[in-house]
Design a binder for these strands. Structure first.
Lengths: 339, 339
DNA sequence: ATGAAAGCGCTAACAA
DNA sequence: TTGTTAGCGCTTTCAT
């Protein structure tokens, strides 16, 4: 590495002290205008920039936030990352992104690694494994250290921190009701995520809507093996004579559309389909998928905003603050797979 | 923030000097085993971890690499990020991820922001705007500072640094040849990225293949407006009677499939389609898309490996090293959209 | 208006 | 075997 210019060097070159340089750069009132000008000039010449590490060490503030994502190949999380990044970078924060790959162990490692003065706070969604194990001590540790945390989407009630969640249950209830209102009466709920907290919530919503409507039949098709899922859905569709599909995740809905096409069922005339997560698959399926948008970017931005608020608020240093939970409203985006 | 435990505190509590603590923690041979044990015990008790900032400031090494991505909602880049993250985290490096959103200005900002001792090196793909403007001074600056850079996919010949690229031209030539060999003779090349370096390369490859084969006609359809692209492709398909489509990006191919379905053209019987980027759309289209896989995760991993090699190699500190360019071989993944 | 000095938390050369 | 000291680059209080 080429040595970066430091205050020391500027000081030497101008025959001034380091502190004078430091103050000049901040246009401190107690430095003469003339000196200030000279300093700025040389600093510009050398393209001086303060060493971020030293500033952080001194100020105990890194202007960096740690983001823990269970996955990145999932469009939902990618959009959230985008939302976080937008908001954070606009406010002058960097983000360090870690992908836990749904692993508890990696999650713990990352939390420990980042907590040693690398980041000012965390934004995260629990990994699947962490949710199943329900081991949360690494977050309790963070709480003890008074490090602000914002959890999103996959959250835990046991950790007292700011949260941003999606009204999943309500969204699936509404979607199901829409299918019923549009004349469907034998509906399948298909999903690969029945075991995730959000999956359970969505299923609940669907059940409630069906319960509210006499004569409507609900069939649940959990896909356990992603490899054979396509075949499972195909034969399911062939044998069950259903007239609507609610896919609890995007791929389930996309596959349902494809298999309907394959079997020659007309969408939406014979089968209506609604999916979750307004990602690429929804926009580029044929026909285009009616889908629940979770407004992932907005969710990410909101999570970032909440964290930054904590970070910038001096009083939050004291532990006496109320955690907030914000709910991001979903909306149903109507496209061509529903009547 | 709760005060984190420091060497100082451990020293005080054990009535030892800071340096003794420091050495003990490293199991330095010159410290007595007894002291070492005592120190470790207390350190464990307090769950002591060295302050990463201080270590970095001292060692001039952050164990962090900066990753600049033009987009994240694009599956190709998401996969690359995944590959980088895997490789980096495994070697004990963190990554700070910045999304330039194809903007030159943001790219410059991020480079400057990260270059002030926040990262040890960069992995990046040029933003679209940077490529069009061909303004590369921010990278020259990096070179001057002797900061290692690895560019991937969207690279510039004007910057001397390690690169990982995809054999785009060869890939599209091969794909085109495959279409021709399977009996197609009026082929459309459709794309939204004709103005990107990779787009140009891919187009070149397609042209070469067509040039090699007498009697084969090539029609190029550049999509300028992503909004109206669908309609453009639909009417193009209706009016041109082509028998194959090579989509230079994934969405172009996906839309071509959808519009063919809409128009009632049979795939692959009447129209064959090949796309680029083996993403979600290719796997979940109907019929499934035959596509060029760029092995994005591998590409990301390779880029990370190259950077880490530079970072770990002491001799690289001296500028006398040869930049390497590695080519990631693409492969054609055959699915159901080709004969 | 300018500078000296301490300190953020750590490492390492040197002293004892 | 342990401790002292200087220094990484910066900020800030307290002299001058």
């Amino acid at each position: 590495m080429r040595k970066k210019v430091t205050l020391k060097q500027l000081a030497k070159e101008l025959n001034l002290s380091i502190s004078t340089i430091s103050k000049s750069l901040k246009n401190d009132a107690e430095i003469s205008q003339k000196t200030i000008n000279r300093v700025h000039e040389l600093a510009d010449f050398y393209n001086y920039k303060p060493n971020a590490l030293a500033v952080s060490l001194k100020s105990n503030k890194t202007n960096t936030i740690g983001v823990l994502l269970p996955e990145i190949l999932n469009h939902f999380f990618a959009k959230i990352l985008f939302g976080i990044e937008q908001e954070a970078s606009q406010k002058g924060y960097k983000i360090v992104t870690c992908i836990t790959n749904e692993s508890y162990k990696k999650e713990v490692e990352y939390v420990e690694m980042l907590n040693y003065s690398s980041v000012d706070g965390f934004i995260l969604a629990l990994s699947q494994e962490t949710q199943m194990l329900n081991k949360l001590d690494h977050f309790r540790e963070l709480k003890r250290d008074n490090v602000p945390i914002v959890m999103f989407d996959r959250v835990s009630a046991e950790i007292d921190c700011d949260k941003v969640i999606v009204d999943d249950k309500h969204a699936s209830k509404t979607s199901m009701q829409y299918l019923i209102d549009s004349g469907c009466s034998k509906v399948a709920v298909i999903s690969t995520i029945f075991n995730l907290s959000v999956g359970k919530l969505r299923l609940e919503g669907a059940r409630e809507a069906v319960g509210d409507n006499k004569g409507v039949v609900l069939i649940e098709l959990p896909i356990t093996n992603i490899e054979t899922g396509e075949k499972e859905i195909e034969s399911f569709l062939k044998n069950n004579n259903i007239d609507a599909v609610l896919g609890l995740d995007e791929t389930a809905a996309a596959v349902a559309i494809n298999m309907s096409n394959k079997l020659g069922y007309k969408i939406p005339e014979e089968i209506s389909v609604i999916g979750f997560t307004d990602g690429l698959l929804s926009k580029y399926s044929y026909p285009k998928l009616t889908t629940v948008s979770q407004h992932a970017e907005e969710l990410g931005a909101k999570a970032a905003k909440m964290l930054l608020e904590r970070l910038e608020d001096p009083s939050s240093e004291t532990r006496n603050y109320q955690s907030k939970t914000e709910i991001v409203k979903t909306s149903l985006i109507f496209r061509d797979s529903t009547r």
